[in-house]
């Protein structure tokens, strides 16, 4: 499969400004040199703790947040380096599903009207075509098209997730960014939402960037996983490989901490502390102050991405010592 979305050395800086009276603020490099490619039809999981830059990366890909430097290629076309309105227009093939679709819907608007809004913004002027697309999208996500006449408060959490998906399906995207699509759902509902996402990918040939901190869900759904820490992707690998042979100490720590049905009772684990503030990113490898395998060089040198196997990349100066 050819790569549908290619990101090279992407940098996004938040909060940089040069005021007339306040002087310069250098800002935070929330996305700090990210390389990531996603093949057509692939589901790539993006995992990391809060504040690691997952959402900023998503917003940059969407064109809502402007990149400071770097390169984004969508289906062979370069779509970076544009103003935000222009960027959003050329990136309409990338769509975003909000973490809580209930909160993203206007409570005073019928579901149909909310679904129609995106089409109107995209310049679809045919009422009958809009209605047909909405009917089709609602049945794609397993809902009765009559739901279009109902209001958000009448629907359950699981139904709202389906609406969130239908809302972007009407726009016929190719890449869908899913932001914690199962957060806050009950297990039984979560299972049906995951199944829907998987089925839609199969039927419509969608490509997903799946943002989550739930490793069990990521393991179940994703083809490949990227682990992000303080603005950088520290490891990527096919899902099975990543879970069976994690290389980066941070990935290992995440996997060890993640609750699983087979988890043993919490016992002695290396104390990790908490991630530093994004405004105080440590020098060298940003993970070094929390790392249990830290060496003297880790605070001085930023590790480069190194291949460790088939499509498996890690950014750690000491991964060879750890693997042994």
């Amino acid at each position: 499969m050819p790569d549908l979305l290619v990101v090279r050395e992407l940098v996004t800086v938040l909060g940089r400004r040069q005021g007339l009276f306040r002087g310069k603020e250098v800002g935070v490099r929330a996305v700090d040199g990210v390389d990531l490619s996603i093949a057509a039809g692939e589901i790539v999981g993006l995992v990391g703790e809060s504040g690691c830059g997952k959402s900023t990366l998503a917003r940059t890909l969407l064109g809502v947040q402007r990149e400071a430097s770097g390169h984004i290629e969508l289906d062979g076309r370069i779509v970076s380096g544009l103003g935000s309105a222009e960027a959003r227009r050329v990136r309409r093939d990338i769509q975003y599903v909000h973490q809580d679709p209930g909160a993203a819907l206007d409570p005073w608007w019928s579901i149909g009207r909310s679904l129609e809004e995106g089409l109107i913004i995209q310049g679809n002027r045919s009422t009958s075509d809009r209605a047909a697309r909405i009917r089709r999208a609602l049945s794609e996500v397993g809902l009765d098209p009559a739901v279009a006449g109902r209001y958000p408060h009448e629907l359950s959490g699981g139904q709202l997730r389906r609406i969130g998906m239908a809302r972007i399906l009407v726009l016929e995207p190719r890449v869908v960014i899913l932001d914690e699509p199962t957060a806050g759902l009950d297990l039984s509902v979560q299972a049906t939402v995951l199944r829907l996402l998987r089925d839609l990918r199969g039927r419509l040939g969608l490509t997903y960037l799946f943002i989550s901190h739930d490793l069990a869900v990521v393991r179940r759904l994703c083809d490949r996983v990227a682990i992000m820490y303080l603005g950088r992707i520290v490891e990527t690998a096919p899902t099975v490989d990543l879970f069976e042979h994690p290389r980066h100490p941070y990935t290992r720590a995440l996997l060890a901490a993640s609750p699983r049905l087979e988890s043993a009772m919490v016992g002695e684990i290396p104390v990790l502390g908490e991630p530093p503030r994004p405004s105080e990113i440590p020098s060298g490898c940003a993970f070094h102050p929390r790392c249990s395998h830290v060496g003297p060089e880790c605070s001085r040198r930023v590790p480069d991405p190194e291949p460790v196997g088939d499509r498996h990349m890690v950014r750690c100066l000491r991964w060879r010592d750890l693997a042994a």
């Binding site: 297990l187 039984s188 509902v189 979560q190 299972a191 049906t192 995951l194 199944r195 998987r198 739930d214 069990a216 869900v217 393991r219 179940r220 759904l221 699983r260 049905l261 087979e262």
Partner: peptide, 16 residues
Amino acid sequence: LLLACHPDRAVDLAGI
């Protein structure tokens, strides 16, 4: 059924 929905177990993600 609930445990069978858990992503660590779920075979076909059928839900309940």
